[in-house]
Design a binder for these strands. Structure first.
Lengths: 221, 221
DNA sequence: TGTACATCAGTGAACGCGCGTTCACTGATGTAC
DNA sequence: TGTACATCAGTGAACGCGCGTTCACTGATGTAC
């Protein structure tokens, strides 16, 4: 309940059980609280269909009707949730890339891939919402998967510029990486329902798979 | 939802004599009819959560209560549906393999992979049900994905025996293939919601991807 | 300064709906004697 | 042979439930004069 996902959400003294009404002019805070709660519930339920306005309201500690001050209806909430979670993922990937040295393009690429896998494993519901069940999208906008392919293709080109040789054109190779990671993570989601391997185990396996993929994509020296 | 206002009276005008009652001793036929209808609805809806007993009954042309003569409850129906669809897929793959010559192990492998992709594209709902949302599974039974990896690993070993050289151990390579195909198909499902490319186009792209994957897995001669 | 009013954040009860499930039943078809 | 009965395939109406959504409202906090 107090698990904060974002650094900017800084609730100091949250009364357990009873929710304190926001101050004047800060009504927008509830909007974020609702999105965070929806994201958490999505993570627990694993699918967007089990997600209900009443459930989200219960989780936040408000009346169902209060949601309508911030979102037009249920599908509006879900659309906002997609955007919110996707921005979160992109931000994480950008930070992971920036944390690696400029002189190590392969390291920057791997860091992004691993961050993508880490997010996907840690937030299966949101991940599926964004990449599998993605609802209708504006025609002129690119899908999330598309954006991701672009990011990774850029990373691959940087590797080429640094001397590495690809066995496929950069964009095709990027698709292999995104799609492979996507598939591997999905399998891991299925497994984790039954198997009792630790999340770290799952992560190690997925990272291993992604590294396999990376090594396949490049010429062996 | 927002259309609730108009849903005041929407009687399903099914032709009354559309379905004839089964004869004595053939009551089991309805069981299959129900599974087929559920599979079709799943294909249309794309997700198992939109699947309702009442919807299935409507589709078959029977009373909702009639389902209970063949399945204990909704989850029982879904479990039977998983089994039914998975057996269908395996049977298709077996036939595709058998249709290729014994002397062409790579052809046999490709045929199976393509069949898998074809089924996944043609039956997105069932595919997701089997491989993504797979419900609880007996501990001593292997998952569908597992069985598939075994099949393909066998195919890869046959290729090795015929002289091809793998860049990864057979099972790891099989995982790359299954997972890659899985991921590529999932992406294609997302795309097809928005993009207007023909199903044949999607198929060609997926086949191309899978062939890329195959070529990556083997040493270049 | 006090006070009237506007605005805000959020509530509680109600609505109509489709859902899964139960239960007593119906009418056709087979079987025993 | 006829007829009583068992069995089968399937029905129709009802139930309680949680859902999304609406609407009139409440009480706290700000602002104008």
């Amino acid at each position: 309940m107090t698990g904060q996902r974002f650094a900017d959400a800084a609730p100091e003294d949250l009364p357990k059980g009873a929710r304190a009404r926001n101050r004047w002019g800060q009504g927008d805070r509830l909007r974020t609280e609702i999105l965070v709660a929806a994201g958490q519930l999505l993570g627990e339920l694993g699918t967007v269909d089990g997600l209900t306005l009443r459930g989200v309201a219960r989780h936040v500690g408000i009346a169902p009707a209060s949601i309508y001050a911030h979102f037009p209806d249920k599908s509006g909430l879900v659309a906002a949730l997609v955007e919110y979670e996707y921005q979160r993922l992109v931000e994480l990937m950008r930070r992971a890339e920036a944390a690696e040295s400029d002189g190590d393009p392969l390291g920057r690429l791997r860091a992004q891939l691993h961050t993508f896998c880490h997010y996907s494993l840690a937030n299966p519901g949101s991940y599926r919402l964004i990449f599998v069940l993605r609802p209708q999208e504006d025609d002129d906008r690119r899908t999330s998967a598309h954006t991701l392919v672009d990011r990774l293709a850029g990373g691959l080109l940087a590797c080429e510029a640094a001397g590495a040789r690809l066995r496929l054109p950069a964009e095709r190779a990027a698709i292999v990486l995104v799609v492979g990671a996507h598939g591997r993570v999905a399998i891991s989601h299925v497994r984790s329902v039954t198997a009792t391997s630790s999340p770290t185990d799952a992560e190690r396996q997925v990272f291993g798979f992604v590294d396999d993929l990376l090594s396949l994509v490049f010429e062996t020296p």
